[in-house]
Amino acid sequence: MNYYLLTISYDGSELHGWAKQNNLLTAQGELEKSFVAIFKSNLFHTLGASKTDAGVHARNQKVFLQTEFRFNHRLIARDINSRINKNIFVKSIVEISPDFLVRNCKQKTYRYYLSTNEYDPLKRRYYHFLKFEFNKFKFEESLKLFVGLHDFRNFSGLKKNEYDNYNLERKIDHINIISEDDNNHYIEFKAKGFLRYQIRKIIGTCIAYNNNTITLEDIKKSLSINGEKMKFIADPSGLLLYDIIY
Score class of each variant (00 low, 15 high):
97 S>M: 09
63 V>S: 00
195 L>A: 09
221 K>T: 14
207 I>G: 00
169 E>T: 14
91 K>S: 08
30 E>W: 02
218 D>G: 08
199 I>K: 03
178 I>H: 12
11 D>A: 07
67 T>Y: 01
21 Q>I: 00
117 N>D: 14
190 K>M: 10
109 T>M: 14
10 Y>N: 06
95 E>G: 14
200 R>E: 03
170 R>W: 00
113 Y>N: 09
75 L>N: 15
59 R>L: 15
103 R>V: 11
190 K>W: 01
53 D>K: 08
156 S>L: 06
152 F>C: 05
123 K>S: 07
4 Y>R: 04
136 K>Q: 14
144 K>T: 13
92 S>Y: 05
93 I>H: 06
85 N>V: 08
28 Q>S: 06
35 F>C: 03
53 D>L: 11
37 A>E: 15
45 H>G: 00
179 S>L: 06
186 Y>M: 08
8 I>P: 00
211 N>R: 06
79 D>A: 15
198 Q>R: 03
8 I>V: 13
127 Y>A: 04
119 Y>N: 03
119 Y>M: 07
86 K>E: 14
223 L>K: 08
150 H>R: 11
221 K>Y: 12
168 L>I: 09
149 L>F: 11
53 D>H: 05
14 E>A: 12
226 N>K: 13
50 S>L: 00
17 G>W: 04
161 N>Q: 11
96 I>W: 04
163 Y>S: 09
152 F>K: 07
22 N>T: 13
184 N>Q: 11
202 I>V: 11
63 V>Q: 00
177 I>Y: 05
213 T>M: 13
211 N>G: 01
242 Y>F: 14
119 Y>C: 07
174 H>N: 14
223 L>D: 01
140 E>H: 01
157 G>F: 03
51 K>L: 13
23 N>Y: 12
236 P>V: 06
18 W>K: 05
24 L>C: 06
209 Y>S: 07
178 I>C: 04
26 T>A: 01
183 N>D: 14
209 Y>K: 09
210 N>F: 03
173 D>G: 10
213 T>L: 14
222 S>L: 03
72 N>A: 07
104 N>I: 03
88 I>C: 08
191 A>F: 01
202 I>T: 06
191 A>K: 08
150 H>Q: 07
118 E>D: 13
149 L>H: 09
152 F>H: 02
3 Y>A: 05
149 L>T: 13
59 R>F: 15
51 K>S: 15
28 Q>C: 07
51 K>D: 10
137 F>A: 14
204 G>T: 05
145 L>K: 06
29 G>D: 04
210 N>A: 07
46 T>N: 08
41 S>C: 03
60 N>R: 15
106 K>P: 01
59 R>T: 12
147 V>N: 04
238 G>Y: 02
170 R>V: 09
101 L>K: 15
13 S>E: 07
42 N>V: 02
178 I>Y: 10
197 Y>R: 11
55 G>W: 06
130 L>P: 02
148 G>Y: 04
97 S>T: 15
113 Y>H: 15
245 I>M: 10
89 F>R: 13
44 F>V: 06
52 T>S: 05
57 H>L: 09
215 T>E: 00
194 F>T: 03
85 N>R: 07
26 T>L: 02
163 Y>W: 12
99 D>Q: 11
35 F>P: 00
134 F>R: 01
